[in-house]
Design a binder for these strands. Structure first.
Length: 272
DNA sequence: ATCCGCTTTCCTGATT
DNA sequence: GAATCAGGAAAGCGGA
């Protein structure tokens, strides 16, 4: 019936990141891309603040961690500073996400020198149009991060999760299919500062909540899934499928009200 | 290449 | 009448 929307997002799911990329890297591009930078690209020690920031975004993306769950300002530093942080520093800066970040940066520090873009042709780069260079940079990051992603699958670094901050269960089981709807809803509920009256708890301890702006939530969900035609009608159908799986429980007679079920994790104030 | 889980889309009918 | 709820049916999509 309807034309299916396109198409794959490559390395970043965030359009703001894209715009950041093109704007922030423009000065570099204008003056040509120094070859030194290519070597340093894969070595975290030489990352700029922005590259650190991008690494952060990518790792969070890979592990399906909401960026709001850590104070990003704690990582307002360049690669050199980042690499000098201890495990404890990461714990302090990012709580339960700390170990993941620490693991990532450790791997990248060690493998950085072996990750090379396949003989990049640098000779004509200064004459190439800016977008191409930006694409190369992005692709290179994709290589680094995909390598890291592969390492994540093999390794079992989730064992040392002490949890000073409320842990999201999706942290420990890197969710291969991206954030699920119920997790998206939960995370809105759990981030009041980022929840401008969209959904509200009706009974915090029982896990009962109510949509205040149903269509706005649907739009937000659609944004996350790159689907501008999402509606509450469709979102709610997906919500109803959760009843069978006991991720949600039915709340009779109350419109726009749902309740977390036995299989929903990570919403309680104190998780058992 | 195929299967599976999780939606997304659409729909008919009921309820608020 | 509009919004929401209930699910069946089928299709889409990304990952394993």
């Amino acid at each position: 019936t309807s034309e299916r929307r396109s198409c794959s997002m490559s390395i970043t799911s965030s359009s703001t990141l894209d715009s950041q990329l093109t704007t922030v890297w423009r000065p570099l591009v204008m003056s040509g891309y120094p070859s030194r930078t290519w070597q340093h690209e894969s070595q975290p020690q030489f990352w700029s603040k922005f590259q650190v920031w991008e690494w952060l975004q990518q790792v969070m993306d890979i592990h399906q961690i909401d960026a709001s769950s850590i104070p990003l300002q704690n990582f307002d530093m360049d690669g050199h500073q980042l690499c000098s942080l201890s495990y404890q520093d990461f714990l302090r800066a990012a709580g339960s996400v700390g170990p993941i970040l620490f693991h990532s940066i450790t791997e990248l520090k060690w493998s950085g020198t072996s990750v090379r873009p396949t003989a990049p042709d640098l000779s004509g780069i200064s004459t190439q149009p800016a977008p191409l260079v930006v694409l190369r940079v992005k692709r290179h990051f994709a290589i680094i991060l995909s390598k890291y992603k592969t390492m994540c699958k093999k390794s079992t670094f989730t064992s040392h999760h002490t949890s000073p901050t409320p842990p999201s269960p999706s942290l420990t089981q890197a969710n291969p299919r991206g954030t699920h709807l119920w997790e998206f809803i939960r995370d809105i509920l759990l981030n009041p500062e980022r929840n401008p009256g969209l959904i509200k708890w009706e009974d915090r301890t029982e896990g009962v909540f109510r949509f205040l702006k149903s269509e706005a939530v649907a739009q937000l969900w659609g944004k996350k899934k790159n689907n501008s035609s999402m509606t509450y009608e469709k979102l709610s159908r997906a919500m109803r499928y959760y009843y069978k799986r006991e991720i949600l429980e039915r709340v009779d007679g109350r419109r726009l009200v749902y309740k977390f079920g036995r299989n929903a994790r990570g919403w309680r104030e104190t998780e058992k």
